[in-house]
């Protein structure tokens, strides 16, 4: 059986990628399960989807805890602990990384004992949004059991409702990825179905019976949401050019849906990068165009370079 976990951010087409991959396996004669993890599927938020494919009926259910392949559409998620990208990987696992850098550096950096395959991302915005489809195309090649035609048929089937132009761009991206990892074809191997006897029970935590005041899910503090670092969702970063900001009447601060722009005592706006989700509303509403949009990746690289 192939156990494949796709990770990425909402908006990158992770769910679509898992469906394409699932249908492609199905077209190649496999039994298939594919499902996204149901949750807050918000643009920019961490997302995962699961694909199982086997030559005989699949009896495993639920999330994949021991993946043969982890396909990661957005390398910045490796810095987000809650995304759990590498959970359950072992020396036989393959990590497909849609990003930059070379495989050996990633292996060393992540202390990853399995195989790393890098699918180069050109870093352009449009391409990033098709990360899910690109991962699906590459994963199909890594398994080595899916033909180009089967991949194309799966895309046509899954995207039928979105019209011909969506199908066309997705197919182009998925096929480019399929070709880009050609020399790793077959690196992903089928693993054995897990035997029930090998099941290790999770480490349950026994909670004592508490009074409702403690045990009920009541929140007694104000605005605890600030503990959630939604700034990690961002793919683009707003940056204020204070030389051009005319300290208007805090238009950006009022129109930021996330309360992520504060107005200081001297009437200057200040962006809270811990929480800014990168919607870029402030960029489009600032009357003198004093806020510009910067790819988050570039902004982080600049910060790293500036750090002592």
């Amino acid at each position: 059986m192939y156990r494949i976990r796709l990770h990425g951010r909402g908006g990158q087409g992770i769910k679509t990628g898992s469906r394409i991959l699932g249908s492609a396996f199905f077209g190649a004669g496999f039994e298939v399960q594919d499902a996204p993890v149901y949750g807050a599927e918000r643009r920019g938020a961490s997302m995962a989807a699961h694909v199982r494919a086997a030559r005989s009926p699949i009896r495993e259910r639920g999330v994949i805890t021991r993946p043969d392949l982890v396909a990661l559409a957005d390398e910045t998620l490796l810095q987000v602990p809650a995304a759990n990208v590498l959970s359950g990987v072992g020396p036989d696992s393959v990590l497909l990384l849609h990003g930059n850098g070379d495989a050996e550096t990633w292996r060393a950096r992540l202390a990853f004992s399995g195989t790393v395959v890098v699918l180069p991302a050109a870093g352009e915005h449009a391409e990033a949004e098709l990360g899910g489809a690109r991962c699906a195309g590459a994963a199909a090649r890594l398994a080595g059991v899916i033909s180009r035609q089967q991949l194309m048929a799966a895309i046509a089937q899954e995207l039928a409702s979105l019209g011909p132009s969506a199908t066309e761009t997705t197919t182009a991206q998925a096929l480019a990825a399929y070709d880009a990892v050609a020399r790793h074809a077959g690196v992903l191997r089928e693993s054995r179905p897990a035997a029930a006897v090998a099941f290790a029970a999770p480490e349950w935590i026994d909670l004592p019976l508490e009074s409702a005041r403690i045990a009920a899910p009541d929140i007694f503090a104000a605005a605890t949401s600030v503990e959630m670092r939604t700034g990690l969702w961002r793919t683009m970063r707003p940056e204020i050019d204070y030389a051009h900001c005319n300290r208007c009447a805090w238009i950006c601060s009022t129109l930021c849906p996330d309360s992520a722009i504060r107005v200081l005592a001297d009437r200057s706006p200040e962006i809270d990068l811990e929480h800014c989700k990168g919607c870029m509303i402030c960029v489009s509403v600032c009357p003198p165009h004093a806020i510009r949009a910067l790819p988050e990746r570039a902004a982080r690289a600049r910060e790293l370079a500036a750090a002592p």
């Binding site: 909402g10 807050a40 918000r42 643009r43 920019g44 938020a45 104000a222 605005a223 605890t224 949401s225 600030v226 503990e227 959630m228 670092r229 939604t230 969702w233 961002r234 601060s253 849906p257 996330d258 309360s259 992520a260 504060r262 809270d272 811990e274 929480h275 989700k277 990168g278 919607c279 870029m280 509303i281």
Partner: peptide, 12 residues
């Protein structure tokens, strides 16, 4: 602003 940042609503 009173509403805390960090909610799980979509960007924008």
């Amino acid at each position: 602003h009173l509403l805390g940042a960090g909610s799980a609503m979509c960007a924008g």
